[in-house]
């Protein structure tokens, strides 16, 4: 049998598809191991600097003046003139917790404001829009399949 016939026979069976793709991924990760060491670029966007363990917002304290421009290292600062405003904003409740306890930092991602919200909502908002659309599509599929049963 010709080798190309054999290959196309394997390719045409969709049961082999996952194994085929997994094999390709294994090969690329082997290439990845061989290409080590890779140099980590020190000059990153949104770096984790200014860590201050004594702050109530540790490890998410990025400093800055509330309702003022704050330095945020983003890719295109000229596109986000208000970058830094969300970073420095705390709701009154969050502010109270930050001033009186040391533990707000661990839950800061859950409050409006903070650097993560700055990235998620403002500078990289398009990412989050696509992400919620993926969630929307997946739930549309799941709930359509689930609810179809009652109609039949």
């Amino acid at each position: 049998m010709l080798i190309i016939t054999r290959i196309s026979r394997i390719l045409s069976n969709f049961q082999n598809l996952v194994a085929l793709f997994a094999g390709a991924c294994i090969i690329v990760s082997l290439i990845g191991i061989l290409s080590l060491p890779l140099v980590f670029e020190g000059n990153q966007l949104y770096p984790k600097s200014q860590l201050d363990p004594a702050s109530g917002l540790y490890p998410y304290n990025r400093g800055g003046v509330p309702f003022g421009t704050t330095e945020v290292i983003c890719q295109y600062p000229e596109n986000s003139p208000y970058a830094g405003y969300v970073t420095t904003y705390l709701t009154p409740l969050s502010l109270y917790l930050a001033e009186n306890t040391l533990y707000l930092g661990t839950t800061i991602v859950a409050h409006p404001g903070g650097i993560i919200d700055e990235i998620l909502y403002n500078t990289r908002g398009a990412d989050t829009v696509v992400e919620t659309s993926i969630l929307f599509t997946a739930f549309a599929i799941a709930s359509y399949l689930y609810r179809r049963r009652e109609g039949e």
Partner: peptide, 23 residues
């Protein structure tokens, strides 16, 4: 990557995985 950006990128990564699992 270990920056704030990485933390923000993990969220979409997680959501994509979870939602595809549901479907």
């Amino acid at each position: 990557i270990g920056t704030d950006l990485a933390e923000a990128l993990i969220l979409p990564g997680l959501v994509v995985g979870a939602s595809e699992l549901i479907a």
